[in-house]
């Protein structure tokens, strides 16, 4: 997983609430067995017209937001399915940071696992950042994860909260499995205890 330290980039505003995972990546594109290549279908229904051509009104089809690496939306971003294809599609498009007043739980989790930083900020702050984003190339936002601030084009710093463990994993680009396996003895102890206390626990075997 790529580290996330600081990101200075073009931000795109998508001023909608409840942007669901079917909108981010429709189910018919989930047939891949890879993590990459989904970027061209990110926001498919909003991005392309029925004949397959680009919808020129959609923000991510316009310059300079085609190169956006930060996405700002309203509440409950990523609601719906658990598909990790949603952050994969965003990442493959180039998005490294999503900012919204609130997120759906599973999507929020999935972002961290892929080096995307989800930042939760009050709606009025998101609206101000959307104003900045509307200035496109002239207004890059900077996200400094170590200092936990978003720096606006006028230099104003907006601080945000983040779970310290997740911050650490992002800054170092670490995945969870290696971390957890450091606690393997604890897992084995748990299993031994369970074996005694829940001796009824069935195993699944199919011939």
């Amino acid at each position: 997983m790529e580290k996330f330290t600081t990101l200075s980039a073009i931000a795109a505003a998508l001023p909608e609430a409840n942007i669901d995972t079917d909108k981010i990546i429709p189910a018919r594109f989930l047939k891949t067995t890879q993590r990459t290549g989904l970027g061209r279908h990110a926001f498919d229904a909003m991005r392309y017209r029925e004949d397959g051509s680009e919808n020129p009104d959609f923000v991510l089809n316009r310059e300079p937001w085609r190169k956006a690496e930060i996405l700002i939306t309203f509440d409950n971003l990523g609601c719906g399915s658990s598909r990790e294809h949603a952050p994969w599609a965003l990442l493959d498009f180039g998005i490294r940071c999503v900012i919204a007043p609130s997120f759906a739980d599973i999507f929020f989790n999935n972002c961290f696992k892929n080096g995307i930083l989800p930042i939760s900020l009050p709606r009025e702050v998101c609206e101000r950042l959307m104003d900045d984003a509307s200035m496109g190339e002239n207004a890059r936002l900077t996200v400094d994860l170590a200092r936990q601030v978003v720096i606006r084009p006028d230099g104003e710093e907006v601080s945000f909260d983040i779970d310290p463990f997740r911050k650490h994993l992002l800054l170092e680009g670490l995945d969870d499995i290696g971390q957890t396996l450091q606690h393997e003895q604890g897992i084995t102890r748990y299993e031994n205890r369970e074996h005694q206390e829940k001796s009824w626990m069935p195993s699944i075997h199919i011939d």
Binding site: E84, I106, N110, K113, N114, I177, T180, L181, E184, I187
Partner: peptide, 11 residues
């Protein structure tokens, strides 16, 4: 998510 699927498989 799928990263967690892998995590559960391994741990």
């Amino acid at each position: 998510g799928t990263s967690e699927v892998e995590h559960v498989m391994a741990t």
